[in-house]
């Protein structure tokens, strides 16, 4: 098993008091807890901090950990036979550190020496959550995904171990960002009659170069040339179900949302969201001289003042 320096993880010296250990945990939990921190790697860091605290806050576990001695983090260690004999759970003569990682080792000491481990009590299996990123195309038509998970399960001695599982899951169409699928009983197995835990698949939508999702609706930027916005036009617009023609009315302003009903993402109940084309009026960055001449002609011919309200509303500030 690989050694972890629990004191270093909590930022403490080896002789830290219980109060110092508790304070260090609270400070780091506030910093890395997934409900508080959105930093990349925060959840992993929090698990590390929580594991260190679970061991060091318990007098027996801390004493057992200290007896392993200070090693280099990441170094492979094997608790010596006299250590195993000294710390094995009461009534568990089959105890062996073989095949356990460091956190599992101290979980085995949960009952404490001489207090018994409650090995025969039934325990419910652990729920297991996994993030499942999918594309907009996946959400539109449904998809099949392969899941390779290492789930915590109870062994014959009632101790948690990580067990690999391979699943194939069909994500039905209609998934939206943040939704969850529950698979009853497919989480960690329960122990001695305890119910199995559930598996939760947390759906997240990957960013798309064209579409932005809001629930089951989609938003798409629709760039128009100035003459298209003024005169109106018909344009081809991509949708997840294939391109459609959209009529742009004359005098369409920038920012207008043109609705294409039922062209968004399917809903789980068989409906469909809408797709909204958000109008942007864009101008060419380079124009030829004939084009520039036409624009100057238009400028002379038109009485349109887009900033007429500046002089009226600006004067009210005085």
């Amino acid at each position: 098993m690989k050694y972890k320096d629990y004191y270093a993880i909590l930022g403490l010296e080896r002789g830290a008091s219980e109060e110092q250990i508790k304070k260090a945990y609270r400070r780091l939990a506030r910093k890395y807890h997934p409900d508080v921190s959105k930093e990349a790697g925060a959840e992993e860091k929090f698990k590390e901090v929580a594991e260190a605290y679970q061991t060091l806050k318990d007098t027996d576990k801390r004493a057992a950990y200290d007896q392993l001695g200070a090693q280099r983090p990441g170094e492979e260690i094997r608790p010596p036979p006299d250590w195993q004999q000294h710390w094995q759970p009461s009534g568990d003569d089959a105890f062996s550190a073989e095949g356990l990682d460091l956190s599992e080792l101290f979980e085995r000491l949960r009952g404490g020496r001489g207090r018994g481990g409650g090995v025969h009590a039934s325990m419910p299996g652990q729920d297991y959550e996994i993030a499942v990123p999918i594309t907009i195309a996946d959400a539109y038509q449904g998809t099949e995904i392969d899941l390779d998970l290492n789930m915590p399960e109870y062994d014959a001695q009632g101790q948690l171990r990580r067990v690999p599982h391979a699943f194939k899951a069909r994500i039905p169409k209609g998934a939206s960002d943040g939704q969850r699928l529950r698979v009853p009983g497919k989480g960690g197995k329960g122990f001695n009659g305890g119910r199995n835990g559930d598996l939760y698949l947390n759906i997240s939508l990957r960013a798309h170069p064209l579409y932005r999702a809001s629930g089951h609706d989609l938003y798409l930027d629709l760039p128009l040339a100035p003459w298209e916005a003024v005169l109106g036009t018909s344009v081809e617009v991509p949708t997840p179900g294939g391109p459609v023609r959209l009529k742009v009315p004359a005098a369409t302003q920038a920012g207008r949302h043109l609705r294409l009903p039922r062209r968004g993402l399917p809903t789980p109940k068989g409906g469909q969201g809408d797709l909204f084309a958000v109008v942007l009026i864009v101008v060419p960055s380079v124009v030829s001289e004939p084009e520039a001449a036409l624009y100057r002609q238009l400028q002379s011919a038109s009485a349109f003042d887009p900033r007429a309200h500046f002089s009226e509303e600006g004067s009210h500030a005085h």
């Binding site: 391979a166 899951a169 069909r170 969850r180 009853p184 497919k186 789980p268």
Partner: peptide, 23 residues
Amino acid sequence: MRIELTEMMWFEQHAVSLAELAE
């Protein structure tokens, strides 16, 4: 061998009693 997950339900379609919630 991959186990096919067939009994999946949208989490939003759940309804449980207080006792089930506790469990």
